[in-house]
């Protein structure tokens, strides 16, 4: 297993967000996390990236326990990419500087090499013309694609995507989803939290429904989204259909 979460517990005050959650992700696998707001999708991703400390359980990456208090979180994060709902690009840096910051400062790559690699990526996603622009000159979809590139240039073993299309206007969602589909084609291992059931169905190998701080039901998209076993899953999907999002 590339990623293995066992018995993960996370509590905020009196509120139990994750309650003994278990989730395994194999290499090259794409897992979509679905569930109501507050079901712990984003919290789980932040825990895996060690931005939030877990209150019990273990998380292993490539067989190493990353939740070992003696593990260096900076080193762990170098192997995991995280893309946020609100892009979180650095507004005082150009697109190119946003992308090359970590390769140059963290991975100590020569700036020229990092820049060449960044340009290659930008060219691939059709944003080479924006290399010198600041993030506020870009559309939401463009910013999110830059944010994904920024995570990818560190060659992460695992990419975490946290509601990456939720802040986008509907007509801009497509360009980001296309990019993620291409990454899947290249074998990138991904865990994505999403509200887009259609996208989960298309791109995920497995869909995991989070409820009550656990994975209540998981399986192939067609089964979980089309013929769920659990009553709670059916209720959740019924509400989604009502809202016109399936």
């Amino acid at each position: 297993m590339l990623l293995s979460c066992k018995n993960v517990r996370k509590v905020f005050g009196d509120h139990v967000i994750l309650d003994g959650l278990g989730l395994d992700v194999a290499e090259h696998e794409v897992v979509a996390l679905i569930g109501a707001s507050g079901s712990g999708k984003s919290t789980l991703l932040r825990c895996v990236n060690l931005l939030t400390e877990i209150d019990d359980g273990t998380i292993h990456l490539d067989g190493d326990e990353i939740t070992d208090p003696q593990a260096d979180p900076d080193v762990v994060r170098q192997r995991i990419g995280l893309v946020f709902q609100s892009y979180n690009l650095f507004p005082h840096m150009t697109v190119l500087d946003n992308i090359t910051l970590a390769p140059v400062r963290v991975h100590k790559r020569p700036p020229a090499e990092a820049k060449a690699q960044a340009m290659q990526w930008l060219d691939r996603v059709g944003l080479a013309g924006k290399a010198g622009a600041y993030p506020d000159r870009l559309s939401g979809g463009q910013q999110q694609r830059v944010a994904i590139v920024r995570a990818l240039v560190n060659n992460p073993r695992l990419l975490l995507l946290d509601e990456v299309t939720s802040a986008l206007d509907p007509e801009l969602v497509g360009e980001v989803l296309t990019m993620i589909r291409e990454l899947k084609g290249e074998g990138m291992t991904m865990v994505l939290a999403t509200h887009e059931m259609g996208f989960a169905r298309q791109v995920a190998d497995r869909v995991a429904f989070l409820d009550g701080g656990r994975v209540l039901e998981q399986g192939p998209p067609a089964q979980v989204l089309g013929d769920p076993v659990e009553a709670r899953t059916r209720q959740f999907l019924a509400r989604i259909i009502e809202a016109g999002r399936l």
Partner: peptide, 23 residues
């Protein structure tokens, strides 16, 4: 969220401060 983004890229607290927060 700016610090979170910097840390998620593997930057240390010092690097995040120096390159992302202070500017």
């Amino acid at each position: 969220s700016q610090i979170a983004a910097a840390r998620s890229l593997g930057l240390s607290y010092r690097q995040a401060m120096r390159h992302v927060v202070l500017p």
